[in-house]
Design a protein around this nucleic acid. Structure first.
Length: 1200
RNA sequence: GGGCGCAUAGCUCAGUUGGUUAGAGCGCGUCCCUGAUAAGGACGAGGUCUGAGGUUCGAAUCCUCAUGCGCCCA
């Protein structure tokens, strides 16, 4: 016996029970134990930050991250799932600053770095509980207890090891980075912060003359000497950067003009396209004297407007790599970024105060021999004031100097024009009156640029979903890769493990705390010990963090008496997360990490949202490529031979998956087979919120109903970014409580490809219940009802152990007959089951959950709306015949297999059903949990494609029949004499004829006839098969089409049937069309009750004889009695007494004629025509005939 | 400003290598069925596939441009 299934199912409650069950029985742990020694499927968890509450977008990521590991586990792989937490970084510091009500670095220092770090640590795990609850409630199986944590000592040391590797290989260097700098607060702002602070502002816009040192060539009609002295005309909105000018940039393929201004005699050079615009602005008369290509101007020298540097460095030269020498500064250089939208086409370059300018400086430096190139000129201090290098401006805030600078330009005759310029400019989001400036900071870089080609090559080995990421967003990013700016002048992060000699500047990297303490003359470790003594609760991990680590110094190996001190920076937290493939194991310092790392590298599967393209996806790839990529045999980081050997044991399969070692030892040619860290990557779309607003926009509602109730009308539907401030989305827990995790999961998996950006729609989540879960539940409930009524108990017939209840196990049962012996309907649904299994596995192997879900939905539809529907009378027939047992076994097998198929998608519902149908039914002799089962494998011998096609045809005909009945307003309860089905194609005619009864029953008609020629109802059309004929006929196709349309279809059909082909005479010669190259379409002629589909037309006979009407009445009566049974709460098997009192002769006659049928259908013991004493009379109308109905339940008894 | 993507029914989304009548679910309307019963099913209305060009015998699909939206980077 199966446990009775409650009809009013509430999924959230079931899910809670399943969660308890999983926990008590340690099902997740068992699912791993189950696969001990199996081939590996490697999953990496991209670590979330737990310093904020999880939102619906995290649910999507975590659902996808659960789906494929679950699937692969069932497919026989061992998939270890280590959780991880990202704990470092600016966002954490910002949170803490908010709590403390402070902003700047000075305020942090004042508060105390030590205390600040402690607060960061507290903040990091503030919402861990919420995250863990969400993870568990969603059914995301992952080892939360053994999570890697980026601030842990082992993790930090692993990162240090990686950095030392890079440092020792010369891949880590110090340079400048131009940052958006908040001078008053003394800190750089992240791009996100900068983005928040843009405001429209009016800045001075000045056009300045840069006098060229040498005259430029001109035609002799302009000047008889053939040359003229000229100025460059340069535009800038930041006059304060002019003292720092180093170059003027032009675009080589742009045309420039030499123009005379109001006949002044000293012409200027300006992009030709801008002559008119600038002349107009300045209100001057420009006369073009001659023109140059930008390329002709390159290399010419000019005098900058200020001589702070020029005074002493004007003629300095450096050695070029290509041989020869060139001047270091104040010459015209080529640049592609020059545009002619605004300005003059000649761009002032102050590399210290513009990122683009700085890039150009680097390019210039690259032309020179190391150390010989132009230096960076920066006469501005970090507090935003001019230094002693500009004596007359010294100590003043740069922006305040704009006016004096302009005045001076004017005085020297260099100012051509001045105006106000309105534009967007960033301000500090914390101190609104402070404009940001671009400013150079010393920074450590990783030479990723050198590995551009290697990274691109590795990128090509990754199976990106969607594919366009590879060559699009990610590929483009790699192609324009610049060196990774690694260091951050912050507090809470992995400290940069570089110690520098205070005297010589000699630097070295350190790979562990232990290594550090073993250095000669080490001192300062007591700072940590002292802190720990004061506060014994401090986690040991903190000792590798600021400020404790900063205290540690040791003797310099280069200068006696000098100390090595750590550089004060921490690193970009993206490096932390990108290091997780090895750092999660504490590689290489932690014992056993060597094995663990190489076993779990690279990942088969990762998934995050698209915003991670330049984040985690990049940091993983860059770090792996640099550390483990192809390089000389000196590699410190090559996999041990044992790990290599183990990996070759992996099963090979299709796709990018496991496209790994061939099994041969080719490690000499390629030191590391997988320098790319992940093979398959699903890039998720971003999730938007939807909400409703009151007409005034002041009130927000999360459902339309609420909006309707509150505002009646005029409320507005909104779609936009999810926002904590706006609270424009429903919290995940509420979704779990109302609809359940499976509903949410199915909504994510089944509605769209995962990379589609979706609107988080509560309504759609709700809908996934009736669409899928409830439909499955109804079939399951149906099965249990009848299995229990019939005493169908598989456990009684199957020996122990029953295991996973595979078809082989079920076949042991005495009453289980081979599929070939069963009814066709059984063979059909089992064939569909295996086809679905095949398709779902293929889709899931290709990481295509959307297609997989569609196939599952289609199967469930067939099971529910065709198989169960048509099998009903088999289930409620009285005798336990072999056919009835077949129906039970078939449905049972379908359900058992289906719950295995859906287990990775909706793990809770699958488990609930499995527990009843398998675990409980077999009293512990079946596999404990559906998640410990193997994924079903399709049996090709059970698949009958022809039957699938035929059954689909039958379903179409029934559907058309219903449509036809609808048109004629003939309800299905009214039997009809006959239906004629006209087929365009006689291929499946015989089969359909054999199944006429099935179609007839569904349509409630007595006779179904198939005809292939029925000119009386049908018009035929012969159409060309364009897909076939297109390639063959090309240009002639339209003529063929026309000719076919004009020719009498009857003649064409005749020709086709007699000759097997059609010959058309066309102006440009004859064309022969074979049977396969044409399609025959049918169309019902008007005036018939008919419906047409692709391949068939269904025509109904609408003539109603008295016999048919009488039969219809009988069915009406049955319907009325069944309704009444329900009213008086009959059990399914209750027997009843029935009486019908009526004046209607037709009705009495119908009862007379169909007495047995009525009694059988309604489980009536008798059917009389006088009132039953004690029974309540109910008045009914049956097709317009009034009657009074009496029902009375007898004692409950089995219908058998 | 640059890169990438998206735009299909009232809403949320599918649409396989270009092919004849562009689909699903929800919502709406009209019904049906019901011994799965707080389900289920059918039918209908609703589409210039964002716009404009182009390639092609043929374009929602390929190309170009424009518009709008999103993400990333400036």
């Amino acid at each position: 016996m199966f446990r009775a299934v409650e009809s009013n199912v509430f999924f959230p409650k079931l899910e809670e029970e399943v969660l308890r069950f999983w926990k008590e029985r340690q099902i997740y742990e068992k699912s791993l134990e189950n696969r001990r020694g199996a081939p590996l499927f490697v999953f990496y968890e991209g670590p979330p930050t737990a310093n904020g509450l999880p939102h619906p977008g995290h649910c999507l990521t975590r659902a996808i991250k659960d789906l494929f590991p679950r699937y692969r586990t069932m497919r026989g792989y061992l998939c270890k799932r280590k959780a991880g937490w990202d704990t470092h970084g600016l966002p954490v510091e910002v949170e803490v600053c908010k709590e403390l009500g402070i902003h700047s670095k000075a305020e942090i220092e004042q508060y105390g770095v030590e205390a600040f770090i402690h607060r960061c640590l507290e903040s990091v795990f503030r919402y861990t509980k919420e995250w863990e609850e969400l993870t568990e409630r969603l059914g995301f199986w992952i080892h939360l207890k053994e999570a890697y944590v980026t601030y842990h000592q082992s993790y930090v040391e692993s990162v240090w090891w990686a950095l030392k590797e890079l440092f020792d290989r010369g891949l880590l260097y110090q340079g400048h980075k131009i940052v958006w700098w908040w001078a008053q607060g003394g800190t750089a702002l992240s791009s996100g912060e900068v983005g928040q602070g843009y405001r429209q502002v009016a800045d001075p816009s000045v056009y300045v003359r840069f006098p060229l040192l040498e005259p430029v060539p001109v035609p002799t009609h302009v000047d008889p000497t053939g040359q003229m002295a000229a100025d460059l005309l340069v535009w800038t909105t930041t006059p304060w950067t002019l003292p720092s000018n180093q170059f003027a940039a032009v675009k080589p393929d742009l045309e420039y003009s030499l123009v005379d201004i109001d006949g002044e005699g000293r012409p200027v050079i300006i992009a030709s396209a801008l002559v008119e615009q600038v002349a107009g602005k300045a209100g001057k008369q420009f006369t073009i004297l001659t023109a140059y290509q930008g390329a002709e101007l390159i290399g010419r020298r000019y005098r900058p407007p200020f001589d702070y540097f020029y005074r002493s460095q004007a003629n300095q030269q450096g050695q070029l790599r290509s041989g020869g020498k060139d001047y270091l500064a104040w010459r015209i250089v080529p640049a592609e970024f020059v545009t002619v939208d605004t300005g003059t086409g000649v761009v002032h370059q102050a590399p210290a105060f513009g990122e683009v300018d700085y890039e150009l400086l680097l390019e210039e430096q690259a032309r020179f021999v190391e150390g010989e190139g132009p230096p960076l000129l920066c006469p501005v201090a970090p507090d935003g004031t001019f230094t002693h290098e500009c004596p007359d401006l010294q100590g003043r805030w740069v922006k305040d100097c704009d006016r004096d600078i302009i005045r001076q330009l004017k005085a020297e005759g260099l100012l051509f024009h001045q105006e106000q310029y309105l534009h967007e400019y960033p301000f500090c989001w914390r101190a609104e009156e402070d404009p940001l400036i671009q400013y150079p900071r010393r920074s450590w870089f990783i030479r990723t640029r050198q590995f551009r080609e290697e990274m691109l090559a590795n990128n090509r080995l990754i199976n990106w979903l969607p594919e366009h990421i590879r060559d699009g967003r990610f590929g483009n990013f790699l192609e324009t890769n610049v060196d990774w700016a690694l260091s951050r002048e912050r507090y809470w992060g992995t400290p940069l493990p570089i110690w520098v000699c205070e005297k010589t500047g000699y630097a070295e990297a350190v790979a562990s705390y232990e290594e550090l303490l073993s250095k000669p003359g080490v001192a300062g470790a007591e700072v940590w010990l002292e802190a720990k003594r004061r506060n014994p609760d401090l986690p040991e991990h903190l000792k590798v963090h600021k400020p404790y680590i900063d205290a540690i110094t040791y003797d310099s190996p280069k200068a006696p008496g000098a100390k090595m001190r750590r550089v004060p920076d921490v690193i970009d937290c993206w490096f932390d997360s990108g290091a997780m493939p090895f750092a999660q194991w504490g590689y290489p310092n932690t014992p056993g990490s060597d094995e663990a790392f190489w076993e779990q590298f690279p990942a088969d599967f990762i998934s995050e949202a698209i915003d991670q393209t330049r984040g985690w996806f990049y940091s993983l790839l860059a770090i792996s490529t640099l550390l483990f990529g192809n390089r000389s045999a000196t590699s410190a980081a090559a996999p041990p031979p044992s790990a290599q050997a183990k990996k070759t044991k992996k099963k090979s399969s299709k796709g990018a998956d496991h496209a790994g070692p061939s099994g041969k030892d080719d490690s000499k040619a390629r030191p590391v087979p997988y320098p790319h860290p992940y093979r398959n990557c699903i890039v998720l779309g971003l999730m938007l919120a939807e909400w409703w607003e009151s007409p005034d926009g002041k009130r927000r509602f999360l459902s339309e109903t609420e909006a309707q109730q509150a505002c009646a009308q005029g409320y507005v539907h909104k779609v936009g970014k999810m926002s904590k401030q706006l609270r424009n989305y429903r919290a995940p827990e509420e979704i779990f409580d109302q609809y359940g995790a499976d509903a949410l999961r199915w909504y994510f998996f089944a509605n769209q490809a995962p990379w589609t950006s979706i609107v988080y729609s509560e309504r759609t989540i709700k809908e996934s219940i009736p669409e899928f879960l409830l439909r499955l539940w109804n079939v399951y409930s149906f099965f249990v009802i009848y299995a229990n009524i019939d005493g169908f108990d598989p456990a009684k017939e199957i020996g122990k152990p029953a295991g996973q209840l595979t078809p082989q196990v079920l076949a042991q049962a005495r009453s289980y007959r081979p599929i070939q012996k069963r009814a066709e309907l059984d063979r059909w649904i089992l064939s569909e089951l295996h086809r679905t299994t095949q398709a779902v596995a293929a889709a899931m192997d290709a990481y295509d959950n959307f297609t997989a879900c569609q196939r599952l939905s289609e199967f469930l539809d067939g099971l529910s709306n065709w198989y169960v529907r048509l099998s009903r009378d088999r289930f409620w027939s009285g005798e336990l015949t072999a056919d009835k047992m077949d129906a039970h076994w078939t449905l049972y097998e379908c359900l058992i297999t289906l719950v295995k198929l859906i287990a990775p998608f909706t793990p809770f519902t699958a488990e609930t059903i499995w527990q009843n149908l398998a675990a409980a039914a077999f009293h512990g002799q079946a596999t404990e949990s559906v998640h410990l089962c193997d994924y079903p494998t399709p049996a090709s011998e059970a698949i009958d494609e022809t039957l699938s096609i035929r059954m689909a045809l039958a379903r179409e005909i029934v559907s058309l029949g219903r449509s036809a009945r609808m048109n004629a307003k003939l309800k299905v309860r009214q039997p009809l004499a006959r239906v004629e089905v006209v087929l365009a194609d006689r291929q499946h005619l015989d089969w359909l004829q054999q199944h006429a009864d099935l179609i007839g029953k569904e349509l409630n008609v007595h006779q179904v006839e198939f005809i292939t020629q029925a000119e009386q109802y049908i018009r035929y059309t012969v159409l060309p098969d364009l897909k076939r004929l297109g390639p063959r006929l090309g240009r002639r196709l339209p003529a063929v089409r026309e000719k076919l349309a004009q020719t009498d279809p009857g003649r064409l059909l005749h020709q086709l049937q007699s000759a097997g082909s059609i010959r058309l005479e066309l102006p440009d010669g004859p064309v022969e069309l074979s049977q396969e190259e044409v399609l025959v379409r049918l169309e019902a002629k008007p005036g018939w009750t008919a419906a047409q589909g692709q391949a068939s037309v269904v025509v109904l006979s609408t003539e109603l004889t008295p016999e048919l009407l009488s039969e219809g009445l009988a069915r009406e009566l049955v319907h009325a009695i069944q309704n009444r049974r329900k009213d008086i709460q009959c059990e399914y098997t209750d027997r009843i007494h029935v009486a019908v009192v009526t004046e209607s002769a037709e009705l009495r006659s119908a009862i007379q004629t169909h007495r047995d049928y009525i009694m059988h259908e309604t489980l009536a013991l008798d059917l009389t025509d006088s009132p039953l004493p004690g029974a309540e009379p109910v008045e009914v109308k049956l097709s317009g005939h009034p009657a009074v109905l009496y029902l009375q339940i007898t004692s409950t008894q089995k219908k058998k």
